[in-house]
Design a protein around this nucleic acid. Structure first.
Ligand SMILES: [Mn+2]
Ligand SMILES: [Mn+2]
Ligand SMILES: [Zn+2]
Ligand SMILES: [Zn+2]
Lengths: 148, 148
DNA sequence: CTTGCGGATTAGACTCATTCTAATTGAGTT
DNA sequence: AACTCAATTAGAATGAGTCTAATCCGCAAG
């Protein structure tokens, strides 16, 4: 189920790319569309397979390139858990990641400002941090998967 | 500068190994000694090179095996930053990791119980987490390196 | 002692996610 | 029509980590 980009998302993509001196291409649109379609933190291969359905000639190398470009211009975040394949997340709000040990699914966990603050406060003087990564490992009750 | 294990550390090693049905071997002692000698979160290769100085016949495979064993019986933690080589940490107290963007050094950051609590509290109902990993990326002022 | 057992160690082959290389494409320009 | 230059592409290369199969060795039984 890959819907097209909304006007808003298209502008978001275009603005970020153009702002960093890069071009909007059909491949980049396709990959970005895949990322927005499901918020399930897909791996490169998953993105590749989904995007191929709509753009059969797309190459894996290009998926790597697109995702790297998006990370570079702040459109998506990389998500790493242990040594597994890198996953990609288009949620730009500050959030942590919860990895379900059973299913492997990755869920976003909202990160309230006061928690962020208390985290920064544990840094000793002289330590200055731009990026904080928080990841949980455990089990999550099933709920349902239409969490798009 | 690889000192020998203290009696206390030797007992710690032996207890953890025996408790999980495994043997104390010279290789395991050497690798554990290396880990305790410097709290700098060495990679497998760094552990290998340091341990070889005191046990020249030691193989890389064995270092992988020892470290896996130690992780399995809770003697050390793995530390991953992005896609870099896994590092190893013998600090069993709850702590976060700070990675210096400039030097690559990894520093332990103490994690007070109230911060742990506020972190657990952000999990929605139904989410149960055993492991929380927190890592900072940024710059740390030099201080000095005799932080053993 | 001598032998047998089973875990530990070892060298080297293998895996596979990611990166690199070099050739090709194609949209926009001269 | 030719040029330019980023983007795309296929395939090779990389390298941390894992696997395999042979050897080692401490210990216990005979
Ligand atoms: Mn789940
Ligand atoms: Mn530092
Ligand atoms: Zn996310
Ligand atoms: Zn540590």
């Amino acid at each position: 189920m890959i819907r097209n980009l909304t006007e808003h998302d298209k502008e978001h993509l275009q603005e970020a790319l153009v702002k960093s001196g890069q071009k909007v291409t059909p491949q980049r649109e396709a990959v970005f569309t895949v990322l927005l379609a499901e918020r399930d933190h897909p791996t490169v291969d998953e993105v590749f397979n989904r995007a191929r359905e709509v753009m059969p000639g797309l190459s894996l190398a290009t998926v790597y390139n697109c995702l790297e470009t998006f990370v570079g211009c702040g459109l998506v975040r990389q998500v790493n858990h242990e040594r597994e394949s890198t996953r990609y997340c288009p949620n730009l709000a500050p959030h942590a990641h919860f990895r379900d040990k059973e299913t492997g699914q990755v869920h976003d966990i909202e990160l309230p400002p006061d928690v962020m603050k208390s985290l920064r406060s544990i840094l000793p003087p002289g330590f200055d941090s731009e990026v904080i990564e928080i990841s949980f490992l455990g089990r999550a009750q099933a709920k349902d998967s239409h969490s798009n």
